[in-house]
């Protein structure tokens, strides 16, 4: 059981990293990004390919994965600079599907739909599975801690203030003299980098990745995590990620609780419960569990 919980904590950590990245892009800067699984995939493939094909050490492969995802983030942000709302959502969704299709078709590089297996990780096969999971859980949550600190600092800094201004109205922000495009690029670069980091950690923990691991469902889960936790808040992003993994995994234990149901009915019930809980949550707490507090500055009246 401990072993399983630790593994789930690792997955929750990966989701939390992605939710933090999304918090910067969508929560603060207001750019709807439905392509985050694409950045996740780039991070995963980059780190996996570097370590498996070129035997690059992990400590170099992980930063490389973050940089690669970041660079793609800048690329996507440049291409979509003039898009907003639904249009941005569609284009980013398309981006992540393109990444997945490239991964399934460029067989010479990615091994196609066979995927990449035997991705190394420190201690795999040497440590007991329990210790290995524990070690990885610590690594992932240290990364989450660092990322949370980074996003919180950025959010409180003048940088975060400009992003929020862009979210509310980018015309006003540019009238106020803020280079909107530069800020958008920076938000995308940092956010995509965090998603790439999540991908790299995920690939090395799982030891196997395939294009099928990067379906749009992951994007949906992370967007749900952020909206359920509280868009625009760091604690909300992390809490939401834990909630989503707890929901999807916790419902597995229904089979043991409700007797007389066929597995296919339990599978359907699981999906229904996950949906209902999230609908209820967003109906009664539209701002998420930890809603963003409006930041007001009291003017000193002399």
């Amino acid at each position: 059981m401990e072993n399983y919980l630790l593994a789930m904590a690792v997955f929750a950590g990966c989701y939390a990293l992605m939710a933090l990245g999304l918090n910067l892009i969508f929560g603060l800067a207001g750019m709807i990004n439905l392509g985050l699984v694409g950045f996740f995939a780039i991070g995963a493939y980059c780190s996996a390919l570097l370590t498996v094909k070129l035997q690059v050490p992990l400590l170099l492969a992980w930063p490389a994965a973050i940089l690669a995802a970041s660079a793609c983030g800048v690329g996507v942000a440049l291409v979509t600079a003039r898009l907003r709302g639904d249009y941005l959502a569609i284009v980013t969704l398309g981006f992540s599907e393109v990444i997945r299709l490239v991964a399934s078709n460029e067989i010479w590089l990615t091994n196609g739909t066979d995927g990449i297996s035997a991705i190394p990780a420190p201690g795999r096969g040497v440590l007991t599975p329990l210790l290995f999971n524990l070690q990885f859980m610590v690594i992932v949550w240290l990364a989450v801690g660092l990322a949370a600190l980074l996003v919180a600092r950025l959010s409180a800094a003048p940088f975060g203030r400009v992003l929020r201004a862009i979210r509310e109205d980018d015309v006003i922000a540019s009238v106020a003299g803020k280079p909107v495009l530069v800020f958008k690029l920076q938000a995308f670069a940092i956010g995509a980098g965090l998603m790439g980091a999540a991908g790299a950690l995920y690939a090395h923990f799982n030891a196997y990745i395939a294009p099928d691991s990067f379906q749009p469902l992951v994007t949906i889960y992370v967007v749900l995590a952020l909206t359920a936790g509280g868009t625009g808040t760091v604690r909300g992003a992390v809490l939401g990620a834990i909630l989503v993994v707890a929901l999807t995994e916790g419902t597995r234990f229904l089979g043991g609780v409700i007797p007389g149901l066929a597995p296919v009915q339990i599978a359907a019930l699981r999906e229904a419960i996950i949906g209902i809980v999230l609908i209820l949550l967003l109906t009664y707490r539209p701002g998420g569990i930890i809603p963003e507090r409006p930041r007001t500055h009291r003017l000193e009246v002399s």
Binding site: Y4, M8, Y208, S213, E249, R252, P263, I266, A267
Partner: peptide
């Protein structure tokens, strides 16, 4: 017998397999 759904997806399959093995 313990029955799990792999959702025809490697990511979900791994989590279900971890439950079968560890829990």
């Amino acid at each position: 017998l313990v029955n799990e759904d792999d959702e025809t997806n490697p990511d979900a399959g791994v989590r279900a397999a971890r439950k079968l093995i560890d829990v």
